[in-house]
Amino acid sequence: MSSKRTWFSSRSLLYVVALLIALYILVPIYLITISAFSPRNAVFDYPKPFFPKAFSVETLSFFLNSFGVLESVQMSIIVAILTLVLSLLIGAPAGYTLARYVFVGKDSYRLAILSTRAFPIVILAIPLAVTFIRWDLDDTAIGVALLHTAMALPTTILVTSSVFVSVSKELEEAAMVLGCSRFGAFRRVALPLALPGLAASAIFTFVLSWNEVFAAAILTLQNPTLPARLVVQLNQSPLPFKFAGGFFILVPAIVFMLFVRRYLFTLWGVKLK
């Protein structure tokens, strides 16, 4: 009886905490969303009605049609896709190697990968900008994508390695005995089984690149990505415009998170049935 009661109370405490955390994140998102879809003057209403009184896409369409926004969206998408492809092309083989092979310095290598994240990008900013200008990579999609790839690689490598660890080595060996080459066994057995995890990792990278502000802001001038444009523009914009911009940059991240939710556990090596 008493154990049941403590179970119940600890359980409900857990739910209360979970609810608070969820509200902490969801309330601002909700407020941004209703403000983005309200008529311009409703943004200044106080106290705020919980349900919007009027619905309007006026501010949102004003935002989308304002100068350069669509170009920035396009730039952001190109950068994100380039980043995704590059980081998978480089990261997945590295992750596979970490998962399958024993080699001298494996643990130090793993640590070294993580430690690249310890470099504050702020310190690197000026030398990087200078180097990119020298190489004619400044203000280009590939330039930003390269830097985003560097930022995403540690996660990509560690995540893909845990994905490949969850695919049994004996499966590939069985394929090799039955007639596959080393690469054939990877392609026919390990890759299809790792695909959901790899997809999740790719989407993770996409969102990272889509949301990244600092590197994009210092490397671009004429062709900023969306966050880079917003960070400059929003400061000087009226409040409705800020809400519309905030909403627009939120949406892809939320949609992607909904999509990968199922795989987020696999990301960290927990096997889903």
Partner: peptide, 19 residues
């Protein structure tokens, strides 16, 4: 390599392809 040895093998974990 294994594929050129004219062998076949049963593994302890069975290694049946799940997909």
């Amino acid at each position: 390599p294994p594929r050129k040895r004219g062998i076949s093998m049963v593994f302890q974990s069975y290694a049946v392809f799940p997909h």
